[in-house]
């Protein structure tokens, strides 16, 4: 990619000019970092939406949601490797995650709806172990290859002269589109009406003759599909490896808890808040501390605080509003 350019070609500009460039860059840098935070937030939203939906409708804490994200990424890598088609890989990832979700729901999860949160945590924790090592058994111990297709690679120039990767622009767009689709599904379709009804009153829905167990399977598969899709999309710019789902899972939980569990709108707000806090905190906290500390100490205190920042935000939100920003019930 770049070493071929050789030395000398990208030599930095003379010092004076560089200072001016640096000041000009900083405004662009801030905008670019905000875009990065936005993109991160949108991807988190895809994960969190499924998680919050499953909790809202079925009252289930699903720790294995990260595993479905991982399955999406691995299936996408395998399909893209075999066929060379990125689009097909995304579709297969979505379908595979949905199918895996449906199977898990039928075999395991539906026995847990009546159980305590504690049992749900343990059972889905066990599912993580099974999925992670099972994936390693099937796909081997090395990371898999999944890359952005040519037509989505490279950078585009946004208004204001900001260079930004096309693929990340696409991620933001795709994430928002899926979010919009989800909203339309829930607000304007028959299934959506049933889902909303299921959130409010399970017995009533069942009494009205809706096949509640099929509805649950459907909702679970839908959440799984969203996780699988985001895993596949993110997999193209990250490492597709066993265990990739857990860090995202924790963040997705942070998101839905901040937003209020069960609330899609809350998940969106929470996701953007977490995405922006994490990205901007990592960049600007060390700079902030440099204003009144020695650079080395500022870097270490700043980055330490940055890695804790989202958890601090979350606990502040919960101390202020114990059921999250948009949450009704615990």
């Amino acid at each position: 990619m770049q070493a071929g350019a050789g030395p000398g070609v990208f030599r930095g500009p003379p010092r004076l000019q560089r200072d001016r460039t640096a000041r000009h860059m900083s405004a662009i840098l801030i905008v670019e970092q905000i875009l990065n935070g936005l993109q991160f937030g949108v991807m988190l939203f895809l994960m969190a939406a499924g998680l919050t939906l499953i909790f809202g409708v079925m009252g289930l804490i699903n720790l294995a949601h990260g595993s479905l994200y991982m399955i999406g990424a691995f299936v996408a890598a395998a399909v893209a490797g075999a066929t060379g088609s990125f689009l097909l890989a995304m579709i297969c990832a979505l379908v595979a995650a949905a199918v895996a979700g449906a199977i898990v729901e039928i075999v395991v999860i539906r026995r847990l709806y009546a159980a305590e949160h504690l049992d749900q945590v343990l059972a889905t924790f066990a599912l993580i172990l099974i999925f992670s090592e099972g994936t390693r058994w099937v796909f081997g111990s090395f990371p898999m290859y999944l890359e952005i297709p040519d037509y989505l690679s490279g950078a585009v120039t946004l208004p204001g002269g900001i260079q930004y990767p096309l693929y990340r622009v696409m991620l933001i767009g795709a994430g928002l589109a899926v979010g919009l689709g989800l909203w339309a599904l829930i607000e304007h379709t028959r299934i959506g009406i049933r889902i909303r009804a299921g959130e409010n009153d399970r017995e009533m829905v069942a009494a009205l003759g809706v096949d509640i167990s099929r509805l649950y399977t459907l909702v679970f598969a839908l959440g799984a599909a969203l996780a699988g899709l985001s895993g596949a999309m993110v997999g193209a710019i990250q490492s597709v490896q066993v265990g990739m789902g857990e860090p995202v899972l924790i963040l997705a939980f942070v998101v839905i808890v901040i937003g209020g569990i069960g609330s899609i709108r809350g998940a969106l707000v929470g996701a953007l808040l977490v995405g922006l806090t994490d990205t901007l905190g990592g960049v600007f906290l060390p700079e902030l501390f440099k204003l009144f500390m020695a650079p080395a100490a500022a870097t270490s205190v700043g980055s330490a605080l940055a890695s804790m920042s989202i958890y601090i935000v979350m606990s502040l939100v919960l101390i202020w509003r114990p059921t999250g920003l948009f949450g009704g019930r615990a």
């Binding site: 804490i61 949160h117 939980f253 808890v257 606990s315 919960l318 101390i319 114990p322 059921t323 615990a330």
Partner: peptide
């Protein structure tokens, strides 16, 4: 101050 799932997460 919280309960249920919120307690788990906080």
């Amino acid at each position: 101050r919280t309960s249920g799932v919120y307690f788990i997460m906080i």
